[in-house]
Design a protein around this nucleic acid. Structure first.
Length: 225
DNA sequence: GCGACAG
DNA sequence: ATCTTGTCGC
């Protein structure tokens, strides 16, 4: 698929990256996520053993048939350090390269990381969604910012994530006996719809199938092929 | 100055 | 993310 808008430069200083986030955050749109979203693109990244490259993977999951219909990986040089709050500048180049290889355009992107649950309300899910101009959801395995109560112990139990008086996400238990996931809106989505979609993509594991499969794919592609 | 800190 | 053995639980 092609991107409606050309991306900005990726080789930046942390200070410049923050400026880019503040600018792009103005482009985040809020919409009701389509309840009929069928093709979900799960995204995940890893690093080569020498830590010089980032490997991005995308798995297009057909929610109707419950199967992966496309899988792609792409490698890009690692040019940015890990700085909490600037994750996308490290992983997005490889992830976008993988997304670009998709034949079918996704209905929504499911990113491994936060969306609005971010200090500047522009986590990697927002970044990917805005650049691709596609609905996106952040699905992180741990908290970056915000306060919350511990959700109930059963699958589907949830509590909200708050920061500065705003509700920035949902802490969702996707499987009993495991730590909850942090769901937040990325771009062109709503929190309720995001939570519903994550649960709809669940297959008995803590992670929703699209990102779980992308995770597996990237783990294999990391070393060799 | 002391923690917290997506992946 | 990644480095790593055994071990607790279903």
């Amino acid at each position: 698929m092609k991107f409606p808008r050309p991306p900005h430069a990726w080789t930046l200083s942390p200070v410049q990256a923050v400026a880019v986030q503040r600018q792009l955050a103005l482009g985040v749109r809020f919409e009701a996520l389509s309840a009929g979203a069928r093709w979900i693109a799960g995204l995940d990244a890893a690093f080569t053993p020498d830590r010089r490259q980032c490997v991005g993977a995308v798995v297009l999951w057909d929610r109707e048939q419950g199967v992966a219909v496309e899988s792609h990986v792409a490698r890009r040089p690692l040019r940015f350090p890990y700085v909490p709050g600037l994750l996308s500048f490290r992983e997005a180049p490889a992830l976008l390269a993988a997304v670009r290889r998709l034949k079918q355009t996704p209905d929504v992107l499911l990113a491994d990381g936060h969306g609005l649950a971010h200090p500047r309300r522009f986590g990697i899910a927002c970044h990917l969604g805005v650049l691709c101009d596609l609905p996106s959801i952040g699905c992180a395995k741990s908290r970056l910012i915000g306060a919350h109560d511990e959700p109930g112990l059963r699958r589907g139990d949830r509590s909200f994530l708050y920061d500065q008086g705003e509700t920035i996400g949902t802490v969702l238990r996707t499987r009993e006996g495991t730590r909850p996931l942090f769901i937040s809106v990325g771009h062109r989505a709503d929190l309720e719809g995001a939570v519903a979609l994550v649960l709809a993509c669940g297959a008995g594991f803590r992670l929703p199938e699209p990102t779980r499969l992308a995770d597996r794919l990237v783990a294999r592609a990391r070393a060799g092929r």
